[in-house]
């Protein structure tokens, strides 16, 4: 089973790297789904079947569907793709790349010296998770529900068409 973990990890990393570099939004989205599914597999292998299911359902399912809707709504065609290509000139990768490598180096450096237990492979069942979630973490659940409500209201408010559509001008806030 360890091989599954490593293969999934490799797939996830490659797919993610492709997401970041694609010019076509739909292609990137598909790679992102691959990446998320790979991560879901990792969760399953590590003995967390409940969150693996949530990953598939909500991340790879619901959230990605939202993205697809928006892409369809905005009707981004080939023109957008050409522009994307023009925007991705090689030199702009240098700064962020260095920063990311430094950050990764720091994370690795922190982890190297630690005495961490290996993952046991035994499952933390959905029952355990649920008991904890609605026991000690009940307040967190309430807060999460409020957050979702706020997201709902915010999305509804922002998503309204402003009529009549205004041309961009200096006076706009």
């Amino acid at each position: 089973m360890n091989a599954v973990f490593y293969i999934s990890s490799l797939v996830a990393v490659i797919a993610t790297a492709l997401v970041v570099t694609r010019v076509n939004v739909v292609h990137a989205l598909l790679y992102l789904i691959v990446s998320l599914l790979a991560v879901a597999l990792i969760f399953f292998v590590l003995g967390a079947p409940f969150v693996a299911a949530l990953e598939v359902l909500i991340y790879a399912g619901a959230i990605m569907v939202l993205f697809v809707f928006v892409i369809m709504m905005l009707n981004l065609g080939a023109r957008g793709e050409r522009r994307q290509k023009a925007l991705l000139n090689p030199s702009i990768w240098i700064g962020p790349g260095i920063l990311a490598i430094v950050l990764l180096g720091e994370l690795v450096y922190v982890l190297i010296g630690q005495e961490l237990p290996p993952t046991s492979g035994s499952e933390v069942s959905p029952k355990q998770v649920s008991l904890a979630l609605f026991g000690p973490y009940a307040l967190g659940v309430e807060l999460a529900s409020v957050l979702l409500l706020a997201g709902l209201v915010g999305a509804y408010h922002l998503g309204r068409r402003v009529a009549p559509p205004r041309a961009p001008s200096k006076e706009d806030p």
Partner: peptide
């Protein structure tokens, strides 16, 4: 189920 060092999982996450 897999028995991998926890570091490896964390490396992937990072």
């Amino acid at each position: 189920m897999a028995q991998v060092p926890m570091e490896h999982g964390l490396y992937v996450a990072g």
